[in-house]
Design a protein around this nucleic acid. Structure first.
Lengths: 114, 114
DNA sequence: AGTCGTACTACGTCTGACGTAGTAAATGTA
DNA sequence: TACATTTACTACGTCAGACGTAGTACGACT
């Protein structure tokens, strides 16, 4: 089982989170589960990584937060939802373009014997 | 022009350097030029990043260094050459495998409209 | 009543990348 | 031959993102 080192993903955690928010507002716990599911458990974002990303991205204007009390719509516990902003969408699209270049660059240095 | 943020590459600088050393021993200045050339200038490794990677990788047993005085073989200045070790080769191959998984993971979160 | 799942917050550490700066020899150019 | 550029580094300090550890607290299930 190949382990993904976190330093590789560094710089793409934000992108993964924003990808989820492109479908509509969401909150920490849900996003962490979605990332895990989408990757078949190959990548599990750490809670601290996730929540500090929210804080950072809100400061950068990529997301906006609002609190939903239990009862209001969703059940369960009080949650902090995040909504992606225009700025966040632009940032997400830039990251997607950047990825293409990054992939091309890295692959010059990769040899996988078949 | 899409700029590659250094955090994306983080974790793959070592791999890029080791890729070059797989062809035979080399030294800082040469490797930095090769990385630049191979990527058509899309990625230029910073000197401090490069030399600190050497130090780290020598400590980890991935490379071994030796000094070549001007005259001995090559011209120019006194150089510190690096040679990849068995351990370094194993590490390089692991990174190449890891890359496949990483790529797959990240691409779940990328949408590039065509 | 106790455990598990949900939904966080706080705090401190580590590491790799990078900015700035400086050294110094070799090489190319006027 | 004077000067700029290229070559080949070293030193030092800073920063940001990831992560370990810990703790809180409510709700649901058994």
């Amino acid at each position: 089982m190949v382990e993904i080192s976190s330093d590789v993903i560094r710089g793409y955690n934000d992108t993964m989170i924003l990808f989820n928010l492109m479908e509509g507002p969401s909150y920490g716990y849900e996003i962490s589960k979605q990332i895990k599911n989408l990757t078949d458990g190959k990548y599990v974002i750490k809670e601290t990584t996730l929540y500090s990303a929210f804080t950072r991205m809100e400061k950068n204007g990529y997301v906006e937060s609002y609190v939903v009390e239990p009862g209001e719509g969703g059940g369960g516990k009080r949650r902090t939802y995040y909504r992606i902003t225009e700025e966040g969408q632009r940032y997400y699209r830039e990251k997607c373009e950047e990825w293409l270049v990054t992939k091309e660059v890295v692959e010059h240095f990769i040899r996988n014997e078949q």
